[in-house]
C-alpha cells in the first residue's frame, strides 16, 4: 500500500475539544493517563494507523517524550503501526469461536478476498486479521469490524457482508 505521509497531522477544533475533555478526567500532573484514549482518536482520524508523525503529535499534546508514546502504541494489539485497508476485519480465533467454526470463516474470507491473514487487498479496501477472544463466545463465531460486532456468523452471512462492504467502500472505525 502507498503510504501517504504528506497529509497534515493535526486535530481539528472539535476533536481537540474532546481530547482536552478527556485529559481533564485525570488529576493534575497525571495527564499521561489520557494517552490510550487519545491514541484511539488519533488512529481513527489519521487513516486507521499510527504513523511516527501521528505518535509524535500525540506526544506533543501530552507534553511527553515520543518514546513514551511508541512504547505504549507497540504494546497494545488494537494500535496499528503499519497502514491498514479502509476496512479492517478481525476474526476471533480462540477456543469457543474455534469450536463453532472460526477456522472456516477465516479460510472463507481469505479465499474470497484473495489474501492471507495479515494482508491487505490490492485495492486497499480490506485488511484481514485474526484476534483473540472478544467476549462473544456465546454468539460464536464472530468478527469485529471497527466498533461493530458481527456474531453467529455463517459463511453465507460473511458473503453478504463482504459484498455489501465492497459495494459501499466501507470504512471501519472505533471512535
Amino acid at each position: 500500500m502507498e503510504i501517504d505521509q504528506k497529509r497534515e497531522i493535526r486535530f481539528n477544533e472539535e476533536t481537540m475539544a474532546t481530547v482536552q475533555k478527556i485529559i481533564k478526567r485525570y488529576p493534575e500532573g497525571r495527564e499521561k493517563s489520557a494517552l490510550i484514549p487519545i491514541l484511539h482518536i488519533a488512529q481513527a482520524e489519521f487513516d486507521g494507523w499510527l504513523s511516527p508523525a501521528t505518535m509524535d503529535y500525540v506526544a506533543s499534546i501530552l507534553n511527553i517524550q515520543p518514546i513514551e508514546v511508541y512504547e505504549v502504541a507497540s504494546f497494545y494489539s488494537m494500535f496499528n503501526l503499519n497502514p491498514v485497508g479502509k476496512c479492517l476485519i478481525e476474526v476471533c480465533r480462540t477456543s469457543s469461536c474455534w469450536l463453532m467454526g472460526a477456522e472456516d470463516v477465516v479460510r472463507h474470507i481469505e479465499k474470497k478476498l484473495n489474501i492471507h491473514v495479515g494482508e491487505t487487498t490490492a485495492d486497499g479496501q480490506f485488511t484481514l486479521k485474526t484476534v483473540e477472544c472478544l467476549g462473544s463466545c456465546g454468539t460464536a463465531p464472530m468478527m469485529q469490524v471497527g466498533h461493530e460486532y458481527h456474531e453467529n456468523l455463517t459463511l453465507e452471512k460473511v458473503d453478504e457482508l463482504l459484498n455489501k462492504w465492497k459495494a459501499e467502500g466501507k470504512r471501519s472505525r472505533y471512535c
Binding site: I36, L39, H40, F75, S77, M78, E132
Partner: peptide, 10 residues
Amino acid sequence: CYVQVGAGAY
C-alpha cells in the same frame, strides 16, 4: 466516575 478504554491486551 469516568470510563477509560484499553487497547487490546489480556
